[in-house]
Write a protein that binds this DNA or RNA. Structure first.
Length: 496
RNA sequence: GGUACCAUGGCCGAGUGGUUAGGCAGCGGUCUGCAAAACCGCGUACAGCAGUCCGAAUCUGCUUGGUACCUCCA
C-alpha cells in the first residue's frame, strides 16, 4: 500500500483543486448519481462509471476504506417540465406495456452487465429511490418545518426565494437567482409554484400515475432531486466526503440537492463535489434526449451505423482514460481505433514484464522516477492521461529489456511488475478481457497444446527452409485469429 | 438573451511563463528467409490580432469559431 500520499481533487464548489482530507481519517464516503433506468446504458454512462471507479480503486490502493454509494433512479424523474411531464419510467412502461418495475429491473440488470464488462467495481451500496420514500418524506417535513417549502394543491415545493435570503442558491453552479428568474420566459399560468425557480419536493399524483405513495400532503411521488439527498445522508451521513456525477447534473440537480440538504439540516452535506465532463459525438453532446447516442452494447458489437467495427469494453475504458475526466471527449472511429492499438501494446507489455530476464547488480534509477510520476499524476486530480503517458515509458522499458537492449535488476523488475499489476490492472482497471467479452470459454490448456503442436510443424518446415509450408501454416492460423511472432527465443503467438 | 467553458501538429489528447507529454497514423533505419512485433531516428503544433514580460502556446484585452447549462440528460 502506498499510504500517506496527498491526493488533490478539483472541487466544483471552490472551482479549484484542493487537497483531499477525509472527514474520518482513513475512510472515504463517495456518492455518485447513477442512471435513470428507462433505457440501455450508452457511451455517456461509461464516463462517470469509469471515472469514479478509478477514484475508488485509487483510494483503496492507497489504503483508504471506501464506501461507494451509487443510486438507481427508478421514480420521480420526469420527462419534461415538472408540471406536465410524464415519469420517464412510466412512459417507457406504457410504451412497452410492462409494469414500471419490469422496466426498472430490465434496465438495471443491463446497466450492471455493461458496467461489469467495463471492469468497474460494483458500488458498496446501490439504493433505489422507490425504496426510500419514507426517508424522502422526512426531508420534506424538515424543510417545511424550517419554513423553506410550501404546500400547494397537494404538492410541496421548495421555496427558493425564501431559501436564498438565508443561504445562497447557486453556489455550486455559479448562478444568480435573480438572473434565473428574470430569464425564465415560460409563462406558468396554471402553475402551482410561486416562482419559476421553485422545484418540487413532493408531487401529487394524477389519476393515471401508477407509481404513487401516501404522504401527509397527497398520494404522490417524490421530486427527482430528493432521492439523492435522502440516500446519501442515510448511507454516508449528514456530511460526507465526495459527491460525483456528470457536469450536466450540476444544475439543477446538484444545486437543488445541496439546497435541500442545507435547508433541512443546515449544511450542504458534501465536502467535495466532482463533475465529469461529457462525451461528444461530432462535437455535440451525446445524450438520450438528442438521439445521437451509441449504447454500450452497440459499441461492443459494432452494431450501429456510425461504427466501423466493434470495440471491446476495454478499448472503451482505455479510450476514456486517455482523456482527463474534466475535459470533453470526442468520439470517433479513428480515436477508438487508436485506443485499441495503444491498449494492445500496453497489455502485451503487462504480459511480457513477468518473464523479463534480470541482471545481478543492475539498478535502473529511471524506473523509480517513473513510478513516482505515475503516482503523482493519479493523485493530481486523477490525471489518467499523464499516468498513461508514463506507463507507456514503462512499456518501452519492458520491450527494450525483452529485446536485450537494456538491462534491469531484480528490484527493477519487481517495481515494473508492480506498476503493471497495481496501477494498470489495479487502479486503472485495464485488463485483458479478450474472450471474456465474447463469452467463449475455451479450454486454454487444450488450445495451447494444439497451437504449439502446429507451430512445431512450422518450426520443422522452417528448419528445412520449406518457406511455402511455414508461411501457409502462419497464414492459416492468422485466418483463425492466431497471430504469430518469430523472435530470437522462439515463436510467440497471440489470439487477436 | 443570461452564465460558464473550450479552441494544441494528419487524428485523439495532456501540460505549461523559458527544457521532448503520450497514444495512433506517416517517413527513414535496425532486426527477420519473408511477415508481424519491437527498438532507434524524424514532425519544431498550440484559432486570429494587440499588449505585459528578458522570454508566452502558457498571463491580459479584443476578434472569430465552437460547446455546455438556463426543460430532461452521465
Amino acid at each position: 500500500m502506498e499510504k500517506e500520499r496527498e491526493i488533490q481533487i478539483y472541487n466544483t464548489l471552490s472551482r479549484r483543486k484542493e487537497v483531499f482530507e477525509p472527514i474520518t481519517p482513513g475512510m472515504v464516503g463517495l456518492y455518485v448519481c447513477g442512471p435513470t433506468v428507462y433505457g440501455d446504458a450508452h457511451l455517456g454512462h461509461a464516463r462517470p462509471g469509469i471515472t469514479y471507479d478509478v477514484l475508488v480503486r485509487l483510494f483503496r490502493h492507497l489504503g483508504y476504506k471506501v464506501r461507494y454509494v451509487r443510486n438507481i433512479t427508478d421514480v420521480g424523474h420526469l420527462e419534461n417540465d415538472g408540471e406536465v411531464g410524464e415519469d420517464k419510467i412510466e412512459k417507457k412502461a406504457r410504451l412497452e406495456q410492462l409494469e414500471p418495475m419490469e422496466i426498472v429491473q430490465t434496465y438495471t440488470l443491463r446497466f450492471h452487465d455493461a458496467m461489469k464488462k467495463l471492469n468497474t467495481c460494483p458500488p458498496s451500496i446501490e439504493p433505489r429511490a422507490s425504496g426510500h420514500i419514507i426517508e424522502q418524506i422526512a426531508i420534506v417535513k424538515d424543510i417545511l418545518d424550517k419554513g423553506l417549502a410550501y404546500i400547494s394543491n397537494g404538492s410541496v415545493y421548495f421555496d427558493v426565494k425564501e431559501y436564498n435570503k438565508k443561504y445562497n442558491y447557486g453556489v455550486l453552479s455559479g448562478r444568480v437567482l435573480d438572473d434565473m428568474i428574470s430569464n425564465t420566459r415560460t409563462l406558468d399560468g396554471q402553475d402551482d409554484k410561486h416562482s419559476s425557480a421553485d422545484f418540487a419536493l413532493w408531487k401529487k399524483a394524477s389519476p393515471e400515475h401508477i407509481m404513487r405513495w401516501p404522504s401527509p400532503w397527497s398520494i404522490g411521488f417524490p421530486g427527482w432531486h430528493l432521492e439523492c439527498s435522502a440516500m446519501s445522508a442515510k448511507y454516508l451521513g449528514d456530511k460526507f466526503d465526495i459527491h460525483g456525477g456528470g457536469m450536466d447534473l450540476m444544475f439543477p440537480h446538484h444545486e437543488c440537492e445541496l439546497a435541500q440538504n442545507t435547508a433541512a439540516r443546515g449544511n450542504g452535506g458534501v465536502k467535495y463535489w466532482m463533475h465529469n465532463n461529457m462525451i461528444t459525438i461530432n462535437g455535440q453532446k451525446m445524450g438520450k434526449s438528442l438521439g445521437n447516442f451509441i449504447t454500450l452494447d452497440e459499441l461492443f458489437t459494432g452494431n450501429h451505423k456510425i461504427l466501423e467495427q466493434a470495440y471491446s469494453p476495454m478499448t472503451v475504458r482505455f479510450f476514456i482514460l486517455q482523456a482527463h475526466y474534466r475535459s470533453t471527449l470526442d468520439f470517433s472511429n479513428e480515436a477508438l481505433q487508436a485506443a485499441e492499438k495503444g491498449l494492445k501494446r500496453m497489455l502485451q507489455a503487462a504480459k511480457d514484464v513477468k518473464s523479463l530476464k534480470i541482471t545481478a547488480g543492475v539498478n535502473v534509477e529511471e524506473i523509480k522516477t517513473l513510478k513516482e510520476n505515475v503516482y503523482s499524476a493519479l493523485c493530481d486530480d486523477l490525471n489518467t492521461p499523464i499516468a498513461l503517458s508514463y506507463l507507456f515509458d514503462a512499456v518501452k522499458i519492458v520491450n527494450q529489456v525483452k529485446d536485450g537492449k537494456m538491462l534491469i535488476g531484480g528490484e527493477d523488475k519487481l517495481m515494473l511488475e508492480a506498476l503493471f499489476t497495481n496501477i494498470v490492472n489495479g487502479v486503472l482497471g485495464i485488463i485483458d478481457d479478450q474472450g471474456v467479452a465474447e463469452g467463449t470459454s475455451l479450454n486454454t490448456k487444450v488450445l495451447d497444446g494444439v497451437i504449439n503442436m502446429v507451430l512445431n510443424e512450422r518450426t520443422t518446415a522452417k528448419a528445412n527452409k520449406d518457406w511455402a509450408k511455414s508461411d501457409q501454416i502462419r497464414d492459416n492460423l492468422k485466418v483463425l485469429g492466431v497471430q504469430i511472432k518469430d523472435t530470437k527465443d522462439g515463436v510467440e503467438w497471440t489470439i487477436e
